[in-house]
């Protein structure tokens, strides 16, 4: 009731989903394929649910061709390559996912390429590609080729690291919400998580362990120079100082009255 400035409900409604705002390119491939029999239209539907669709990675990124010109869309002259042969898949995905491919090629999976070993799509799917997660490692899927024990050991180790990274992320977020400068840490965590997911394909966990401990250590030290003098000990001293002063003033007053 007593006021100068007056506050009103926020005008705008929160724009929560940045993804919706991302511009979807016009792709002529979809216009034709969506109307065709299941064999040709299914990939479109699957793709629409994928992380590629979410980030605006269209058909031509993998299949080549010209998505802007319906007449020449599937012309080899425009780089159309159709369905890739299985042994070419790692190189195809590796066009963008450089780090992962390197680790994959060096791994047991990569070394058996063309000899019954899995390619990228074996685990990640071809059109409905999802954000990589530990859910991809399932006993059922791994046991199509070998006993799942080793895969499961890796999974549980990864799960531990993943939990640790999530804990670090949460801590960084808390620090940020208290006004601590965390840009550097956030960048390091981002690259660490990427390396972690890439490195999984080489099946070597040791490196990840080291780096996440480094970040953890940096986190402990993150209060910055500006944080000087805001620790709980200083707080106790400051509050105590004022309370003792109040007590002494009170004692003097009581004796004077």
């Amino acid at each position: 009731m007593r006021c100068l400035g007056v506050i009103l409900l926020a005008l705008g409604i929160l724009i929560t989903s940045q993804a919706d705002a991302a511009v979807k390119p016009v792709i002529v491939c979809i216009q034709c394929h969506i109307a065709q029999p299941t064999k040709f239209s299914q990939p479109v539907k699957l793709w629409e649910t994928s992380i590629h669709a979410e980030h605006g990675v269209g058909c031509n990124a993998c299949h080549g061709g010209d998505p802007m010109d319906s007449a020449q869309a599937m012309s080899p002259a425009r780089g159309f390559r159709g369905v890739p042969i299985p042994t070419a898949i790692p190189a195809l995905c590796g066009g963008c996912h450089v780090g992962v491919t390197k680790h994959y090629t060096d791994s047991a999976h990569g070394r058996t390429l063309g000899k019954g070993g899995p390619t990228c799509v074996t685990c990640h799917g071809s059109h409905d590609i999802q954000k990589a997660s530990l859910d991809l490692i399932s006993k059922k899927k791994c046991s199509t080729c070998h006993t799942p024990e080793k895969a499961w050991l890796i999974r549980s180790t990864m799960l531990k690291r993943d939990t640790m990274l999530n804990a670090i992320e949460k801590k960084i977020k808390t620090l940020r919400s208290q006004g601590v400068e965390t840009d550097q840490l956030e960048k390091r965590l981002f690259s660490l998580r990427n390396r972690f997911h890439a490195m999984f394909h080489s099946l070597d966990i040791k490196l990840i362990l080291q780096e996440s401990e480094h970040i953890q250590a940096a986190l402990e030290k993150t209060s910055g120079a500006g944080g000087v003098g805001t620790g709980p000990l200083t707080g106790v001293v400051a509050v105590g100082w004022a309370l003792i002063a109040a007590l002494l003033f009170y004692l003097i007053k009581k004796n004077l009255d």
Binding site: W241, A245, L248, L251, N255
Partner: peptide
């Protein structure tokens, strides 16, 4: 003027308190 109505022990106590306050003020 207050000194006249204060007895010695009270005056001593008040001086101690004042001393404490002086220390607080100076250190703080």
């Amino acid at each position: 003027p207050d000194n006249s109505i204060l007895d010695d022990s009270k005056r001593k106590f008040i001086s101690t308190c004042l001393g404490g306050l002086a220390i607080l003020a100076v250190t703080g």
